[in-house]
């Protein structure tokens, strides 16, 4: 099998690093060089790494804001509907829409729906639950949740070339470079 056909079959090429510093350096250089379809895998969040692999605008906060607004409105109008429209009770001529006493419940539903938006938004954007991912085909990837740092450049990238990409990654003193089966 020649390299070209093999490259299209692969998910990508992965390098294993000993330290977050090396990984960060490799990611930044790769991005500079023009690689875009790549991701870094670490046992804990590393500052500046998402930017280094080209993660741009997070949209999650906006989803959460929408969730909060919906939660607040729903919470308030649920109480308004029950007290003013569906079953109005005249108690000594007090206002039906006694909004100050509706605030606690409105506050709670705002928080609740915002939190749901945050959590389920995160799951959706991250593609979780994720039954299968090619990176797990590399046996040493089991260390990504322990103490090793991985950078995977995917074969879908325009610049991807099996030999060149491998060579590029080897320049950053990785422990090893692996081919990732799809």
């Amino acid at each position: 099998m020649n390299d070209a056909s093999k490259a299209t079959e692969l998910y990508g090429v992965m390098a294993e690093f000993d330290s977050p510093e090396l990984l960060l350096e490799a990611s930044e250089k790769a991005y500079e060089l023009g690689y875009r379809k790549m991701d870094a895998y670490t046992p804990y969040p590393i500052e500046a790494l998402p930017e280094a692999v080209g993660f741009k605008k997070p949209i999650l906060p906006r989803i959460v804001l929408i969730g909060a607004i919906i939660g607040g409105c729903l919470g308030f109008f649920m109480q308004y509907y029950a007290s003013v429209i569906s079953y109005p009770l005249n108690i000594g001529g007090r206002p039906l829409n006694s909004w100050p006493s509706f605030i606690p419940v409105t506050f709670e539903t705002t928080i609740l729906l915002a939190a749901f938006a945050a959590v389920f938004g995160m799951f959706a954007l991250n593609g979780l639950p994720q039954p299968y991912h090619p990176v797990f085909n590399v046996p040493r990837f089991a260390l990504a949740s322990r103490d090793r740092f991985f950078l995977c450049i995917e074969s879908e990238d325009k610049l991807f070339d099996l030999t060149k990409t491998k060579k590029f990654l080897s320049d950053f003193k990785p422990k090893d470079v692996y081919e990732v089966e799809p």
């Binding site: 670490t42 790494l49 999650l60 995160m122 991250n126 979780l128 639950p129």
Partner: peptide, 16 residues
């Protein structure tokens, strides 16, 4: 949930 610890995943995780 098939967590793989990618930089993007971690970023969204930290945001949440």
């Amino acid at each position: 949930f098939g967590w793989n610890g990618s930089a993007r995943t971690w970023h969204r995780y930290e945001t949440v």
